[in-house]
Design a protein around this nucleic acid. Structure first.
Ligand code: SF4
Ligand code: SF4
Lengths: 145, 145
DNA sequence: GTTAATAAAGACTCGCTTGTCCGAAATGCC
DNA sequence: GGCATTTCGGACAAGCGAGTCTTTATTAAC
């Protein structure tokens, strides 16, 4: 898959917090239940987001995670980089080492365009945008039950 | 990664055959050595290409694999589908089940464009094109040694 | 027919991702 | 201070892709 499960869960959780957070700390248990994913596994993904200053967290009662910045200041690209690293935007189709414009594989020209397009939409799309689409567009973050 | 290793190897091997085949059967051992990859593992990938009628094969001396059709009639898309299936073109970012235009996730609109772009360049690019780029453009299929 | 070369097929190991579980540390509430 | 709640962190198991090895089947050459 394009994104790892951790990244997938982390991104969906971040959108959930942006949509249902209202500034409070949202317990990871609530997010896990809402998304229908493993609580402990989701915890690990969100820890990485906290370490990268995308989320803040608080322990104890009324604790949980919250966005470290306004939702419109957090791009999807940032979340992907925090969890999966830059492999998606750097390595690609043929998986060669040290490739690039100077030592290209035969697909380089075309794939470079796809990579740039991916990075562009991930950079332009932020959590507020996604949260709004959930509210007004009825889009979903979970599997249909 | 976007493509599995099997798919990666299979695609590179197919391009090698298109470029260095000249109609003969090319032994898998020769391809594995040229690409610097495991012979046995490459064999598995090429078996799938043979099963999907992209390659033909012959056992025994002077045996090996050859393109089942002219190189310009084999698209990259076909090779990817044969080895990795349609996950790349069907499933995507959020990995939800049964998703699509009717039950979209918030990223659907943008990601659909990326998927379409990927499928387009993979469909338009055929093995002859890639083989020619190797010959005239000096592009590489292997890691630098 | 014998032999050598080669693809096909399957069993097996290894490492990474996913997922589970348990204890420790922090924090609000009484 | 004591307690309930919640994140943090590491250990552990399961599943899967990647890679190795061995055996069998097929074919060409002599
Ligand atoms: S498309 Fe470019 S960056 Fe990607 S593997 Fe080929 S040469 Fe490397
Ligand atoms: S982008 Fe569309 S097809 Fe992909 S996971 Fe989201 S809803 Fe499904």
């Amino acid at each position: 898959m394009v994104l790892s499960k951790s990244c997938d869960y982390g991104l969906r959780a971040a959108v959930y917090v942006a949509a249902h957070g209202d500034g409070r700390f949202v317990p990871i248990g609530e997010i896990a239940e809402a998304l229908g994913v493993s609580f402990h596994f989701l915890t690990k993904a969100l820890q990485r987001l906290s370490q990268h200053r995308i989320l803040t967290s608080s322990r104890g009662p009324k604790g949980g995670v919250a966005l470290a910045r306004p939702a419109e200041a957090i791009s999807v690209r940032e979340v992907v980089l925090a969890v999966d690293g830059d492999d998606l935007f750097e390595r690609c189709v043929l998986g060669l080492d040290h490739c690039g414009d100077d030592h290209p594989c035969p697909l380089h020209g075309q794939w470079k365009a796809v990579k740039a397009e991916m990075e562009r939409i991930f950079t332009e799309t932020n959590l507020r945008l996604l949260a709004e689409r959930m509210e007004v567009g009825g889009m979903r973050l979970t599997n249909l039950g």
